[in-house]
Each structure stands twice: as C-alpha cells, then as structure tokens.
Simulated assay, not measured.
Amino acid sequence: MRNFIYVLLGVFFLSIAPLANAQKKTKKPLIVFVCGDHEYSGEQTLPLLANFLEKEYGFETKILKSFPDQNAEKNIPGLEILKDADLAVFFLRWRLLPADQITPIEAYLTSGKPIMGFRTSTHSFNYPKGDPLESYNGFAERAFGAPPGWGGIAQHTHYGHNASTDVRIIPEKAKHPILTGVSPDFHVRSWLYRVLPDYPKKGTEWLLMGKAVNPDKVAVDQPVAWTWENEYKGKVFFTTMGHPEDFSVEPFQRLIVNAIHWELGKEVPKKWKGNLNINVPYRGMVNSK
C-alpha cells in the first residue's frame, strides 16, 4: 500500500512539474513606472504608454504616482512593489521622499536590475543642505550616468521654454536595437537639455543627438538619449526628452517601446504596432487645487 502511495505521489509531482515550468516561463515581466514631476504630466503620459505595453506586448505594468497630486513632493505610495519589478521607469522631479520610501528605490538601484529615466529625473530629488538624504540629490548620476541634479558644478540647464529640438540618430549607432524602425531625424517639443561637457558619464553609449531650435542662448548640440551599465551592473536607458507632446511623436514612441524591450532582454519588435494615441497637452507648473 505504501509503495502504491509513493507511485501516486510520483505521478502527481511529475504531472504538475511541466505546469509549474510553463507558468514560470510565461510569467509576464513587471514594469513599474514611478511618476512624480510638477511640470510634464508624466502621471498622465506614462499610464497611456503602460496600457499599450500591456495590450500589445503582454507586459504587466504598475503605475505609482505622487499623492495626492503631482505637486506632492513627500509621498509616492506603493514603492515596496519595486522589489518585484523587472524594470523600473522613473519620471521624477525634485522629490523630498522620506527615508522609508527611498529605501525601496535604493534597493532596486543596487540590485543591478535594468532602469530607465525620463527628462527631469536628472534632478529627481531636492533635499536641503544638511538633510540626511542630501546625497540622494545625485541619484541620477549613479542611476543613469546623467548630471547629478540641476545647475551646480555640472551647469545642467536648458535652452529656454520657447525652444524645441531637432533630433537625429548618431550614424554610427544606427544599427543599435533600440533604434530599430526609428526615423533618422525627427522633431520634439522638449527644449533641449544641456548635459555636456562632463555628462553623460564616461562609458555611456550615445544614440541620439539634439539640436536646439529657437534657443534663448548660444546652443551646442547635446546627446538626448543614451544607454549605459551603471556601477551595479544594471542596464540603463535614459532620455532628456519627455515633454508631454513628445509622447505624440511616433519615432519617440517607438524609441521608448524598443528601449523597454532591450532593457528586459527581449527582442526588439521588428513590426511596429503604433501609432499610440497619446495627446496630453503641456500643463506646465500649476498649483494644486
């Protein structure tokens, strides 16, 4: 009788093993979008991008937002889910998160998992001098190879709100997977960010250059998208683009979708399933209601 039970148990475990393996293989990658910027409506554009990724490519996504609105600098609920994320995407600006919310961000960064950032994430945090978390103002340098905050020694700034940017693929990088199907040149509303001469950090791979249109000062062409491997061995994609109107531009949409696949170690789609219907007007800085 005992042998018979052992046989049944053996058959049972053999029968469920393929199912368990199949479930493991079919687990959807989880992309966590962390939104908190005063100006560029990332809390509106990124959910539309996330819906497209779920519908067309089978990813699982989670949107985290500053609460109660984009101007709330001290609270982004739900950051503990980062421990389960396969990719974290940041669109932050001058947050003052408490230490218990910085902890899961730091744990994700140092885990070596892939990480992506948009525009004002160069100055994700803005802790005052002497604050225990003041060093976190340099998050972007460690995470993305970007300038460590706004202004400062890096003189990170832009070429005026009335400017926009002509973008072109760097010819030598045209065959990079992230640039698959991306137009060799296109135009975005983002006013060009100045990151040179000291950033992006040494070792980054520049993919796209931007030229300021109607700048408010003498302008120098700047890299607007790059990849990197940070010190924690995490794959990085960063872009200084991210104005809400940029998300309506098809080459920009494809660039981001390609970069997400690349960061997750998946084949970049050869067939484009866009154009995405993302039409979020520029809000700028507005007071909370």
Results as ranks from 00 to 15, higher is better:
residue 179 L to F: 10
residue 247 F to P: 02
residue 77 P to V: 08
residue 78 G to K: 03
residue 112 G to C: 00
residue 257 V to G: 01
residue 144 F to R: 04
residue 88 A to F: 05
residue 28 K to H: 10
residue 20 A to N: 06
residue 112 G to I: 02
residue 175 K to R: 15
residue 19 L to R: 10
residue 171 P to N: 09
residue 9 L to I: 15
residue 25 K to I: 13
residue 2 R to T: 05
residue 10 G to A: 12
residue 213 V to G: 06
residue 90 F to W: 01
residue 278 I to K: 05
residue 14 L to S: 13
residue 178 I to P: 00
residue 287 N to W: 14
residue 73 E to K: 15
residue 121 S to D: 09
residue 183 S to W: 00
residue 177 P to N: 01
residue 278 I to C: 01
residue 189 R to M: 14
residue 117 G to V: 04
residue 154 A to M: 10
residue 214 N to L: 06
residue 213 V to P: 09
residue 246 D to K: 10
residue 127 Y to L: 11
residue 236 V to A: 04
residue 206 W to K: 12
residue 121 S to K: 07
residue 125 F to Q: 03
residue 132 P to G: 09
residue 93 R to T: 11
residue 273 K to G: 05
residue 201 K to T: 05
residue 90 F to R: 03
residue 67 F to C: 07
residue 54 E to N: 12
residue 195 V to T: 13
residue 265 G to L: 01
residue 28 K to T: 12
residue 171 P to F: 05
residue 257 V to I: 15
residue 165 T to Q: 04
residue 74 K to I: 13
residue 3 N to F: 13
residue 119 R to L: 13
residue 169 I to D: 09
residue 29 P to K: 13
residue 29 P to V: 09
residue 69 D to L: 02
residue 85 A to D: 07
residue 114 P to Q: 03
residue 77 P to R: 07
residue 115 I to C: 02
residue 266 K to R: 14
residue 133 L to D: 11
residue 81 I to W: 12
residue 73 E to M: 11
residue 46 L to I: 00
residue 119 R to N: 15
residue 175 K to F: 15
residue 275 N to V: 13
residue 79 L to C: 04
residue 37 D to Y: 00
residue 133 L to Y: 00
residue 171 P to M: 07
residue 52 F to M: 05
residue 188 V to T: 12
residue 280 V to E: 08
residue 269 P to K: 01
